[in-house]
């Protein structure tokens, strides 16, 4: 396996583990926030995670070599490297802006699990296609992500 292949495999493994943790949190954390102490713990955790991601994004913004550097340019450029961001953002949009009020996922508790699985599958598929010189169009990723979010995780 080449260095690039190893890096890609490590990225996929990291994403997989992260999605598993996210599923467990989605299942159990709503119970934790019913108590004040639990809500504090979840709140502080969320704050730390958001702050860290913002710092990492800021470092990335200043460290790249793109002209007219901005968050938007970085995000657009990222679609050449991964399907993660358009898919994840669109799935979250599907959660909120689906076409039916009080929509319940036909998959029940398996809905979020399927969403996490398809998220991982979409990222891996995008990476495999990219290594073959092909790319999944960002608008198609957005459309599929919106549908997936609507069906598996409607609010």
């Amino acid at each position: 396996m080449t260095t690039t292949g190893k890096t890609l495999a490590a990225t996929h493994a990291t994403l997989f583990l992260s999605l598993v943790v996210a599923i467990l949190l989605a299942m159990f954390a709503p119970r934790w926030v019913q108590t004040e102490a639990g809500a504090w713990v979840v709140g502080i955790l969320a704050l730390v995670f958001v702050a860290t991601l913002l710092i990492l994004t800021s470092i990335a913004s200043f460290a790249d070599n793109i002209d007219n550097n901005s968050f938007s340019y970085l995000l657009r450029k990222s679609t050449l490297d991964t399907t993660f961001y358009p898919w994840a953002l669109a799935a979250y949009m599907g959660r909120w802006f689906h076409p039916v009020d009080d929509l319940q996922s036909p998959l029940g508790v398996w809905g979020p699990v399927l969403l996490m699985a398809t998220t991982w599958g979409m990222v891996v598929l995008g990476d495999v296609m990219r290594r073959r010189g092909k790319r999944i169009w960002p608008w198609l990723v957005v459309s599929l992500g919106f549908i997936a979010g609507s069906l598996t995780w409607p609010a």
């Binding site: 583990l17 996210a22 954390a29 709503p30 809500a39 958001v50």
Partner: peptide, 16 residues
């Protein structure tokens, strides 16, 4: 690190 944290952050914020 970013990839590891992003999905967890989304769920934490959503739960809150």
């Amino acid at each position: 690190i970013g990839i590891a944290m992003a999905p967890i952050t989304v769920v934490l914020l959503d739960v809150l």
